[in-house]
């Protein structure tokens, strides 16, 4: 069982970004840092960035990539990973409302970055759902029914799909230690100043245009709501 598969939210994100999942699936108990960064412009369009940083565990990742299989599942070669990245990029770029899809893969430090522009948050969500369905060949993925991004021009609701966390009980002690070192950072940026955010651990940048929530991966497995956040912008002056 890969670490990614054990974490409910990651499980979802694994489907969300399956190619990154391919790599993460070999990372087992590696120390991992994830950053998601969404910028919403005044017209509702925006920029989505998603980064996975495995550089702290590159020895471990390299050693796992050297194996043929883990728990009966084939470990992909670097060439296969590159090919899947290309496939993912092509499918995502073909979705309506999505443009400028870029994926940077650094196989030396094992850092993977996805960036794309979207016309509105709904198109981003739809595109992601469709890509997942196409790549996973599954038509009915319950997790995809959830809405994890909602934007009405004044407030942004970010949530995590309601997925069972029973898998997290299977973690071994050494996995837990690594998960505690892992970090998830969620950033939301806006064109207008932020008034407040609902997540008690959320912080607002000095320029008031961004908010950030950070948590360790282990805590996230225990409570997927840790990253939930509703961000309110100052109302427009009439």
């Amino acid at each position: 069982m890969c670490l990614f598969g054990r974490i409910p939210y990651f499980c979802f994100m694994n489907k969300l970004l399956i190619i990154f999942g391919l790599l993460i699936s070999v990372s087992l108990s590696s120390c991992i840092e994830i950053t998601d960064d969404i910028t919403i412009n005044a017209d509702g369009s925006g920029l989505f960035k998603y980064t996975i940083n495995l550089s702290e565990s590159k020895v471990k990742v390299n050693s796992l990539l050297a194996l043929d299989s883990i728990e009966g599942k084939k470990v992909p070669t670097l060439a296969e990973i590159e090919s899947k990245i290309g496939e993912f990029k092509k499918i995502l770029a073909s979705k309506p409302g999505i443009s400028n899809v870029k994926i940077e893969a650094d196989f030396t430090n094992f850092i993977f970055k996805l960036t794309c522009n979207f016309s509105n948050v709904n198109t981003l969500q739809s595109a992601v759902k469709e890509v997942i369905k196409e790549i996973s060949n599954e038509k009915n993925i319950a997790e995809l029914e959830a809405v994890w991004l909602k934007w009405d021009g004044q407030k942004l609701e970010r949530s995590i799909p309601d997925i069972t966390i029973k898998k997290s009980k299977e973690f071994k002690t050494e996995d837990i230690e690594q998960l505690k070192k892992g970090k998830y950072t969620s950033i939301s940026r806006f064109a207008k100043p932020i008034e407040k955010c609902s997540n008690p651990t959320g912080v607002i940048s000095k320029n008031k245009l961004a908010t950030m929530v950070q948590t360790n991966i282990y805590s996230l497995t225990k409570n997927p709501k840790l990253l939930e956040n509703t961000i309110y912008l100052f109302p427009n002056k009439n």
Binding site: N53, S55, K58, N109, S205, K206, T211, M212
Partner: peptide, 29 residues
């Protein structure tokens, strides 16, 4: 423990923009 390097993200308080920084790290081998 063997000496390696890792990439860390450092965040600017003003904007939360981040930069990559190579720092020393240690891994088991």
């Amino acid at each position: 423990k063997v000496k390696t390097t890792k990439i860390e993200f450092t965040y600017d308080d003003e904007t939360f923009e981040y930069q990559e920084k190579e720092v020393k790290a240690e891994e088991d081998m």
